[in-house]
């Protein structure tokens, strides 16, 4: 396979990274809301949060993407397919991230929170200064896995016409008739990206050197 073809794949991989990073970031914000809903005392908010998580974890991302791709125009939102793609990815990862957050917040030992209460910290201070940072440390590995999952899942947006890495490989395979090399190369690029993300995750974990809880 020529360098020119490989370079086209690398260029397309930039969109893959961009889409995934965008979806993870937007998904994180949505996940915060959903998690707050799930932990809220309000029954409606709790039910809505759980329903959201159940639906987006209970259906294939491919189906979600197709549904959103056709749903947005049908409610009068004519958006580029990139936007539909990032919306679908963000909603899906939000559900997973919300569940991770809920688990992490719940896993903070209650004694640490009682100790904070005894020093007179308010509920908000306890949450911000004690519960959140510890939950973050606890969930970091799961969040990194989720980011890698999302990078891989981004290949599915090729079906709604976004020319990211997988779609580029597909198009080039069709025109050059060399699917073996092109898909192998695409796989290799995904692998490298994911290894980098995993290494960043381990590096970040190592920097939170405060050890076991």
């Amino acid at each position: 396979m020529s360098w020119k073809l490989f370079w086209l794949l690398v260029e397309a991989a930039r969109l893959t990274v961009l889409l995934s990073a965008g979806a993870i970031a937007i998904g994180f914000l949505i996940a915060c809301l959903v998690c707050a809903g799930m932990l809220s005392h309000n029954r409606v908010a709790r039910g809505a949060g759980r329903l959201f998580v159940s639906f987006f974890r209970g259906t294939p991302l491919l189906v979600q993407l197709l549904l959103i791709y056709y749903l947005l125009p049908s409610i009068g939102l004519d958006v580029p397919s990139e936007v539909a793609a990032i919306t679908g990815m963000a909603l899906c990862t939000a559900a997973y991230q919300a569940e991770i957050m809920r688990g992490g917040l719940g896993a903070v030992p209650s004694g640490l929170l009682e100790a904070a209460e005894m020093t007179g910290m308010s509920a908000a201070q306890t949450f911000r200064r004690i519960r959140l940072p510890i939950a973050f440390k606890l969930t970091l590995p799961a969040l990194v896995s989720e980011a890698i999952m999302m990078l891989k899942s981004s290949s599915l947006v090729s079906v709604v016409g976004v020319i990211e890495l997988t779609r580029m490989a597909q198009d080039l395979a069709a025109s050059t008739y060399r699917p073996l090399e092109l898909y192998a190369a695409a796989g290799l690029i995904y692998l490298v990206i994911n290894i980098v993300v995993a290494l960043l995750g381990t590096g970040l974990e190592a920097r939170l050197r405060w050890g076991r809880i």
């Binding site: 100790a115 007179g120 809880i213």
Partner: peptide
């Protein structure tokens, strides 16, 4: 309650 200090069996120091 601010007049009360408490020490727990499990220490409960904040690990971070």
């Amino acid at each position: 309650r601010s007049r009360i200090g408490m020490v727990f069996q499990q220490f409960n120091l904040w690990p971070h």
